[in-house]
Write a protein that binds this DNA or RNA. Structure first.
Length: 801
RNA sequence: GCCGGUGUGUCGGAAUUGGUAGACGACCGCGACUCAAAAUCGCGUGCUGUAAUGGCGUGUGGGUUCGAUUCCCACCACCGGCACCA
């Protein structure tokens, strides 16, 4: 009989669905495992071959865990709010809700086609009011605790999406999603105070089992700098505060720089003799995009504020104050003390404007370049700091500043608050009412969910207003506090809102009184293993850690961190080694692969393609190799093999080795070598007559990778039950060794031949065996063996003279 | 510029407490089966050489070692992240 993969796959998928084979049922008596993959955005293009890579990986791990006796939660859902759906809906004049419904149905079919062991009773959909009710509820809690606030500030505005973006969504000056230019716009926005959690988000990374590059990227993004805030007096009476990581260099501060947006500039302006020039520089800076302003190659520019001078608290000298756009308004205090001798940027600026450069740390030549080494320099020209190392001087200066009320040690983060509103339609409405007398009033909990109005017209505007603003009936409301006429907030939440807590909902997806019951959360949380893309490291992954910590603080969840372990997969490229894209015409559709070779072949190939963490190009030929492998297994087991369920003597060694290798490789996500080992095992079976037991262990090991064919052959063999419910096999180290060992024989470190010796042979046995070899005899003839190096069961090396 | 990663046959990739480089798969070649082809099964396959105790070979150049893809030093190339963050 032929291997009819289509029939077999349909048959088992139906069976798993009918029997609810993979439903997660809480069971206090069983150890739990919560495996998570990033739920997909149900785009109109359907499933991409990139999707099955992480899904298959976690499916293999989840299936193995079940066979090991764990109670497994492996859920799936849809992150369905977002721009592409909205844009598609506008273009094709259909409602986003209808588009979403259709896309979800299609994704569901495709995911089922691949035989994943998801619990289909726990599907979540972020656009379902029963779900986003709780997204809104979390927002209200954030508002209640002062962590959601509205503020007017310059924000990133995507010229194409026509809405604001978070800092995390701006990549190299363009929109992360559409690649269009991002400009600065002053807008009143809802913000979430993620900065309040900066320290914990950073420190708590230490204990997590996240791959190192994820930790590094989050650490860099949060960007902690330890330094001091220093207060300078000015001749106009105002105090000018700066942040510096090098307070030790205070004696070398020969001028100050404030950002063009600094509030004191506005105040000082009338008293400046060159107010026009300053004003001109400020407006020029305001027009520039962030990208232009931060271009590195650019020469430093700036204008001195004539009419005000600052007083260096260490030297008591009056020093000039400049404005320059190399100082950012949004970091630290928006002002710096410039130490040209020991900071590269200040040095460039000082050279250009002819400002004095004073050496306060010896070790370099400050006339040639800034000396920034902190490890070897010694303080000079610095009063009480003279002779100290940089490290000592930082401490001494911080103490001196504190004692004299001139400043204090402080910490700064690069992380900014999260811009949380979007001027679009297809997202969660923000449950806030704007009342002329009461201000921003939260919607009472019993009015949740605040449903998105179902309307015909929701096109974007260029005015910076949300399409919801035009929906008068919905906007006009009454104030929950005073009962007077009021308006609803018309901005919606960003794409990232729904995904910031979805993993909690999986624990108890149908609960309508809580986001999830305490009992369910206590049982299933935290997520034991979360695999997802590197592109989410400073977006979804960071945001969801923030929300989780907040929910921990208000007692909703019991763990400080949502995910114990985080791994990441590489991208699948087209056959040409380029990123898959419609325009390049190198896109592989999983449906086509499944139709031609079957889901088991696709699963196997996508795991065999290469190192899981690295990008890998698609190869149509290699897919055929995986199909061939399954055909070979089919040939071995399509007819019932009778006899004992013991391993055959001929295959015992390779079986035990395979169990060990496959078990360990799955844990380390080395799926490619696990499959290579299964191929080796099958090759061995082709050279012997595999016993019934040999077949059984092969199907058991195969079942997480290629579950359909494994079940079918399992049934044909009549092993009873299902392969996916069989206990994972154990191996015996003692049975992994051959009685005869082939060892390398080297002379002078060069491999000359190999000989067979008994297992664990003593050194002299190895030597005798080596010397008995004809080749070796010839080589050592007439020479003296001065030294012998042996490595048990591996090699012998003869040093001759 | 800074941080991180990678570099191995024709290709995807194996192998690192230093110990037979190239597992497994693809490609290609040969053989069996077949009237024939496909499929399948088996064999071969780093480069080079007529041969040899051949020679060379894991980005490049050095070093340590009986022995280096693995450790050390210097460099090159590519990829990713950050990028005037004081």
């Amino acid at each position: 009989m032929k291997y009819e993969f289509t029939r077999i796959e349909k048959k088992w998928q139906r069976k798993w669905e009918e029997e609810k084979t993979f439903a997660a049922v809480p069971d206090e008596g069983k150890k739990k495992f919560y495996g998570l993959i990033e739920f997909p955005y149900p785009s109109g293009d359907g499933l991409h071959v990139g999707h099955p890579r992480p899904y298959t990986a976690m499916d293999i791990i989840s299936r193995k865990r079940r066979m090991e006796g764990y109670n497994v939660l492996f859920p799936i859902g849809f992150d369905a709010f977002g721009l592409p759906t909205e844009n598609y809906a506008i273009k094709n004049k259909v409602h986003p809700a209808d588009v979403t419904k259709k896309n979800i149905a299609r994704f569901t079919d495709q995911l089922k086609m691949l035989g994943y062991s998801f619990d289909w009773d726990r599907v979540v959909d972020t656009t379902d009011p029963a779900y986003y009710k709780w997204t809104q509820w979390i927002f209200l809690k954030l508002f209640e605790k002062g962590l959601a606030y509205k503020a007017s500030m310059p924000v990133n505005w995507c010229t194409s999406c026509k809405c604001v973006l978070a800092n995390e969504e701006v990549v190299s000056g363009v929109c992360e999603r559409c690649g269009s230019d991002v400009v600065r716009r002053e807008k009143s926005q809802w913000m979430l105070k993620i900065t309040e959690y900066a320290e914990r988000l950073l420190d708590d990374l230490d204990d997590l089992d996240f791959i190192e590059r994820v930790k590094t990227q989050q650490r860099n993004w949060i960007g902690r700098s330890i330094g001091a805030e220093i207060i300078f007096d000015t001749t106009l009476g105002d105090k000018l505060r700066v942040f510096s990581t090098r307070p030790d260099t205070l004696f070398g501060a020969t001028y100050m720089v404030v950002s063009p947006e600094h509030e004191l500039v506005e105040k000082w302006l009338p008293q400046l003799s060159n107010a026009d020039e300053v004003e001109e520089y400020r407006s020029a800076a305001a027009k520039k995009s962030d990208f232009e302003r931060t271009e590195l190659s650019k020469e430093k520019t700036g204008v001195e504020l004539r009419g005000v001078r600052a007083i260096n608290p260490a030297t008591k000298q009056e020093i000039p104050v400049f404005i320059s756009d190399y100082v950012l308004a949004s970091y630290g205090t928006g002002a710096i003390m410039a130490v040209p001798g020991h900071d590269t940027r200040d040095w460039e600026f000082a050279k250009k404007f002819g400002l004095p450069i004073v050496e306060v740390v010896s070790g370099g030549d400050v006339e040639k370049e800034a000396y920034t080494d902190c490890d070897t320099g010694i303080l000079v020209n610095s009063g009480f700091l003279n002779g100290m190392s940089v490290e000592e001087a930082i401490k001494a200066m911080s103490q001196w500043l504190t004692e004299n009320g001139l400043g204090r040690e402080t910490v700064n983060y690069k992380l900014r608050d999260w811009v949380f509103s979007r001027q679009r339609y297809w997202g969660e409405p923000i449950p806030i009412v704007i009342c002329p007398t009461c201000g921003y009033v939260p919607l009472p909990e019993d009015q949740l969910p605040l449903e998105l109005p179902y309307v015909e017209y929701y096109e974007t505007t260029d005015t910076g207003e949300s399409p919801l603003a035009a929906m008068t009936d919905w906007v006009e409301t009454t104030c929950p506090t005073c009962g007077g006429p009021a308006k609803r907030e018309t901005d919606i939440m960003p794409q990232w809102a729904g995904s910031s807590w979805y993993f909690l909902r999986y624990a108890d997806p149908h609960n309508d009184t809580e986001l999830a019951s305490r009992k369910a959360l206590e049982y299933w949380m935290p997520v034991d293993w979360y695999n997802g893309g590197m592109e989410h490291t400073t977006l979804h992954l960071l945001y969801s850690r923030f929300w989780h910590k907040f929910l921990y603080d208000i007692g909703v969840v019991q763990t400080k961190e949502p995910y114990l372990k985080r791994t990441s997969h590489g991208m699948i490229l087209g056959e040409d080694g380029q990123k898959m894209s419609k325009s390049r015409g190198n896109v592989i559709n999983p449906n086509d692969v499944v139709a031609e070779f079957g889901a088991d072949t696709l699963r196997l190939y996508i795991m065999f393609i290469g190192d899981f963490e690295k990008t890998a190009p698609w190869s149509a030929n290699a897919v055929k190799g995986c199909k061939r492998f399954l055909d070979r297994i089919w040939n071995l087991a399509e007819k019932r093999v009778s006899g004992s369920e013991e391993y055959s003597a001929a295959n015992e060694v390779v079986i035990h080795r395979s169990i060990k290798k496959v078990s360990e490789d799955i844990e380390n996500m080395k799926f490619n070598t696990a499959i290579a080992q299964l191929m080796t095992l099958v090759n061995a079976y082709y050279e012997t007559a595999p016993s019934r037991g040999d077949i059984k262990v092969l199907l058991t090991l195969l079942s997480p990778f290629a579950p359909h064919i494994a079940e079918e052959l399992w049934e044909i063999q009549g092993f009873g039950g299902m392969a996916c419910k069989t206990p994972w096999p154990e191996y015996d180290e003692a049975k992994m060794v051959e009685q005869q060992r082939e060892i390398a024989v080297q002379v002078g470190g060069k491999l000359r031949t190999t000989v067979f010796i008994p297992n664990d042979a003593a050194d002299d046995v190895m030597l005798q065996a080596a010397l008995a070899d004809e080749k070796i005899k010839k080589i050592v003839e007439g020479k003296e063996i001065v030294r012998t190096i042996t490595v048990k069961n591996k090699l012998i090396n003869l040093i001759v003279r």
